[in-house]
């Protein structure tokens, strides 16, 4: 789920930070630049792990600040395909489920990756919201969001930044995880709590 990535970046450290020791100033700037941002194909940056080297300190002509080249390591959130992750239900509508990890919300379970056969029950009180249920052995198993949901990572994509955004579109998500809960042991945890005995007998 988490990886280290080694990155080199050249950036300007504004003179307002001159009073700080160089490591602190650089770290502060790096946090401002990278924390909680998605880097395409590397994932979501969680934290600055360490700074390996700071070089340079050039002042370019007509620029009132020093420019440093820094090599550092970031903790990235980047799930691999096939990984099992526990998440919470965030939204449930006719197109599937949306899950959240608290710090990352763009996880979608489309209808064709829900357990088969699943049915959608619209909520009469709320427009286009509702609950999915899986029918197994004649009994409905409801995805109600009370307990955690385990899903398998099906795909991780980094959509390009749209040049023109249609009005009323969803907010742009730079990293989208598609998950699947169509397998034994996946889905809400409570589904499988008493299931082992019957499974193995």
């Amino acid at each position: 789920m988490f990886y280290l990535s080694r990155i080199e970046h050249t950036f300007r450290v504004p003179p307002s930070l001159l009073s700080l020791p160089i490591e602190e100033a650089v770290k502060g700037e790096l946090e401002r630049l990278f924390l909680d941002k998605v880097i395409a194909n590397l994932g979501l940056c969680v934290s600055i792990y360490d700074i390996i080297s700071i070089e340079g300190g050039f002042i370019f002509p007509s620029d009132g600040a020093a420019t440093y080249t820094v090599v550092f390591r970031l903790i990235m959130f980047r799930p691999f395909v096939g990984e099992i992750i526990a998440a919470k239900l965030k939204e449930s509508n006719a197109t599937g489920l949306r899950l959240s990890l608290g710090f990352f919300d763009d996880i979608y379970i489309p209808v064709h990756l829900l357990p088969n056969p699943s049915r959608f029950k619209p909520d009469p009180n709320k427009r286009d919201k509702g609950m999915w249920e899986w029918e197994y052995g004649g009994e409905p198993y409801v995805i109600d969001g009370i307990d955690e949901i385990k899903f398998r990572v099906h795909n991780v994509s980094y959509p390009p930044i749209p040049i023109e955004k249609p009005k009323e579109a969803k907010p742009f998500a730079p990293m989208v995880i598609t998950g699947s809960i169509n397998d034994d042991g996946l889905g809400p945890i409570s589904w499988w709590v008493g299931a082992e005995q019957t499974d193995e007998s």
């Binding site: 988490f2 990886y3 080694r6 990155i7 903790i75």
Partner: peptide
Amino acid sequence: MKSLEANAGALTNFEVLDFLR
């Protein structure tokens, strides 16, 4: 920005938690 090594090692959840602690 230049990525020198995209995968410089995997971390377990525990290691990330330990780092934040």
